[in-house]
Write a protein that binds this DNA or RNA. Structure first.
Lengths: 221, 221
DNA sequence: CATTTTTTGTGATTTTTTTATCTAGTTCGT
DNA sequence: ACGAACTAGATAAAAAAATCACAAAAAATG
C-alpha cells in the first residue's frame, strides 16, 4: 500500500462513480462489462476509464473486459465500502435533517450515526433514518466526547456560514480527519484534515452560468 | 459577448466561489482586496485567481488590487445574479423539501418557485421557504405546462434513482436547459442541455477515500 | 516629486488530465 | 485448433490547468 503508485486527484473523484455504476450492474445480474459501455453510462471517455482502472493494476482481461463482481468488490475495498463508515452531522437544520433521514444511497456503507447542534431544542427532534434506526442529536459541547467514544473521524458540516469556521476548529480539535463541507465558506484546516466541498449554491450558479454562456465555455463537448 | 474569449471550464466552476467571497467582503464594508488575500480565503493560488479574472478583462489596478464592489457587481452580471433565477424542484422527498425550505444562500438570486412530484400526497405538503413565501407542489404531469407558464428553464432533480432518467426525458421535452442532478445516475441529455452533478454519496466516498489514502494521492498539497 | 513598495496581468513553464493510437493477449465461433 | 473479432493496457500526443516569475503600472511614502 505504501509503495503504491500515486493516484491522480481526478481519478480519485471518479472512483465512487465507477463504484455506483458497478453496483447497479451487479444488482441487475450483469456479469461482464467493457470500458466503452462504462464510458457510455458515466460519460467519461473509455480511455479515461481504462487509464483510471490501470492505476490499480491489471483489473481486466483483453478481449473480454472486466468481471463486474470482481471489479465491484475490488473498488469496494478501495473505497472502504467493505466496512461500515460511521459519520456525524454537525448542524441539524433542514439540510442536516434531510441527510440524516436519507443516510446516503443504499449501495453505500456509510451511516450517519449521530447529529450535533448548538440549539438545545434540536435535541428533542426524533430522527429516524430510512432503515428505521433512530439517530440521536447531541449538543455540540459533547462533540469531542461523543466522537471519540464512537470512533468517528468524518463529519458533515451543515451549520450556518457564520458558525462554519468555529465549528470546524472544534471538529479538528476533536480529532476529525475529514469534513464534508456544505457551507459556502472555504474552511481552513490543518493539512492532515481533508475537506470536500459540496456547495449547493455554487453548483446552481455554475449551472446557470453554463446555461447562459454555453458557447463561451471551452470544450463544451 | 459573442466574440468574448472562451472561459476555461475550471475557471467557470470557481466563479461562484469568487462571487460568494466578494459578497461577504462587501457586506463587511471592505472596499479593496488583492489576489493574495482572495487566494488565502478561497484556497486557490493567487496566480490562478488573477488569471481567472483576466479572462474577463483588466478588472484590477496594479499596485492597488481590486475594488470589491465593482468586482462584485461585475461578477453578479456574469453569473446572472443581477436578475431573479426561478427554478423548480422535481422530486419532493426529504432532500427536495430541504432545498425548497432553504432556497439557497442569501447572497444568491435563485428562487425555487415550485416543486413537482409523482406522488399525489406530496401536493398537500405546505412548504414555506425562509422568506416566508409558500412554494406550491404540483403533479409531474403538469410539468411542461407549469414550466412554460412560468418561464422556468432550470430544474433540480431530486427523484429516486430509478425515476431519474425518465423524469429527465420529461424535463428535456418540457424545454429545460439546465439540470442540477442530485441522483447518483449520470443522466443522458441532448448536448443543448447542461447537467451539473451534485452527488452527496459520491462526495462522501471521495472524502473517505482521501482520508484513508491521503498519501497515495497526487498533489495533496 | 522622486523613490520605494505594491500588485496586477501575462508570457513562459510545468504539471495534470484527457484523448488518440497501437500492440498484444483473450475470447469465441466454427 | 485456427482465425477473426474484441478489448485491455500502454505509449505517445494533445489539451487543459496550474504555477512561476517578472515587467509595467499604480500607489504610497517621505
Amino acid at each position: 500500500m505504501t509503495s503504491e503508485n500515486q493516484i491522480p486527484r481526478a481519478t480519485a473523484q471518479r472512483l465512487p462513480i465507477y463504484y455506483y455504476y458497478l453496483s447497479t450492474l451487479n444488482d441487475a445480474g450483469i456479469k461482464r462489462i467493457n470500458s466503452s459501455e462504462i464510458s457510455e453510462a458515466i460519460k467519461f471517455d473509455a480511455a479515461t476509464v481504462r487509464r483510471d482502472f490501470s492505476y490499480f493494476g491489471a483489473l481486466g482481461k483483453r478481449g473480454f473486459g472486466y468481471d463486474v463482481s470482481a471489479l465491484l468488490s475490488f473498488f469496494s475495498k478501495v473505497l472502504s465500502q467493505d466496512k461500515l463508515n460511521k459519520v456525524a452531522v454537525v448542524g441539524v437544520g433542514n439540510l442536516g435533517q434531510a441527510l440524516m433521514k436519507n443516510n446516503f444511497s443504499h449501495t453505500s456503507n456509510i451511516e450517519i450515526v449521530m447529529g450535533f447542534d448548538a440549539d438545545d431544542d434540536k435535541r428533542s427532534i426524533k430522527l429516524v433514518n430510512e432503515m428505521g434506526k433512530s439517530v440521536p442529536v447531541y449538543h455540540v459541547k459533547e462533540l469531542a466526547e461523543r466522537l471519540h467514544a464512537n470512533n468517528i473521524t468524518i463529519a458533515i458540516l451543515t451549520v450556518p456560514e457564520k458558525a462554519a469556521q468555529e465549528v470546524t476548529d472544534q471538529l479538528v480539535a476533536a480529532g476529525i480527519k475529514g469534513i464534508l463541507n456544505f457551507s459556502p465558506i472555504r474552511i481552513t484546516v490543518p493539512s492532515s484534515v481533508r475537506v470536500q466541498n459540496v456547495d449547493l449554491t455554487t453548483g446552481m450558479q455554475t449551472l446557470i452560468y453554463f446555461v447562459d454562456n454555453f458557447k463561451n465555455i471551452k470544450s463544451a463537448k
